[in-house]
Nucleic acid binder design. Sequence first.
DNA 1: ATAGCTGCAAAGTCTTTGCATGTGT
DNA 2: ACACATGCAAAGACTTTGCAGCTAT
Lengths: 145, 145
Amino acid sequence: MRTILKNGESALRARGLRLTGPRKVILEVLRGTESHPTAEWVHRMVRRRLSRVSLGTVYRNLRLLVAEGLAAEIPGPHARFDANLAAHHHFTCLRCGCILDVDGPLAEPHAAALRGRVAARTGLFGRCPRCRSSRSRRAPARRAP
Amino acid sequence: MRTILKNGESALRARGLRLTGPRKVILEVLRGTESHPTAEWVHRMVRRRLSRVSLGTVYRNLRLLVAEGLAAEIPGPHARFDANLAAHHHFTCLRCGCILDVDGPLAEPHAAALRGRVAARTGLFGRCPRCRSSRSRRAPARRAP
DNA sequence: ATAGCTGCAAAGTCTTTGCATGTGT
DNA sequence: ACACATGCAAAGACTTTGCAGCTAT
C-alpha cells in the first residue's frame, strides 16, 4: 500500500503535478478499494477525511488520473473509476449495474489492440449470471457502491 | 431487408406494440446502417422522411427496441445503438470515440456470460490503433456519425 | 513568487418525462 | 372508442467550467 501510494505520488510528481491534500486522499481512496466506485462514492469517502473537498475537485482529479494513465475509467452515466491497472477487464451488467472483474485475456485479434499501458481501460457489457437466470423484467437491487 | 423489417415489425406486434410512422422509420433507419449511430444521428435520418418527429420520440423508441431485445445499446454519453444482433462485440476508442466491430468470440470464462439472446450487448473499451500510434494528447477528428 | 489547485456555483450535455393532443387497432 | 404514441418543452441526472482566492514548490 505504502509502495503503491508512493508510486502514484511519484508518478504525479514526475509529471510536474502537485500533491495537494485533496488529490492525495482521492488517490488513496481509489487505490484502497476493490470496488469500482463512482465519483460520488469517492467524494463521500474523501469527505470523511477532508470534509471541504468538492465534488468538482473529485471529478477533476479522477479525470486527471485517467489522463495520466494512473487510473482507468469505465464509461457511462455514473462513470466508475479503478486504480487497478493490472491487465483485466470489466463486465458490466446492463440490467442491475453490477461490475465484475474478469482476469483472463481476450481472444485475438482484439487482444492486440488492448495490450500496453491502456490495457486496463476495458469493459464488457451484457447481463450478469444472476440477472440472466432471473425472470422478472425489473432489475434486482442495485449493487453498492 | 424486407424480411428483416418484417421480423422487427412482427416482433413489435407480437408484444402488443403499435406500428406507428415514427416507430417504423426509426427501426428502418437503425436496421439500414452498419454504423453505430447516436440517437441524434438517427433523429436526423428519421427527419428526412418524417420531418416532425421529435428527439424525445427517437429516444423513447430506441429504448423500447433495446428493452424488447430488438436492438443493442452501447452505453455512455452519446449512447450508440445497433440493430445488428448477430453475436459480435464493439471496441470503443476512449480517445477519438470511434467504434469498431469485432466478430470473434471471447475467451472463456467470460464467453459463457455473454452467450444467449443478449450476447450482442457487449463492448470493449480502449484505444484504437490509430490513436495508439498517434503521439498527440488531443484526439484525432471525431469519426462520424 | 507564481503556476497550479480548490471551493463554489453556474452552465453544459445528454436523456427522460409530464401533459395535452393524435392515431393505430 | 380508447389505450397507446407523439410533440413540445420543461425537468433531470451527471459532469464540466469560470472565477477569485489558496497553496505547494
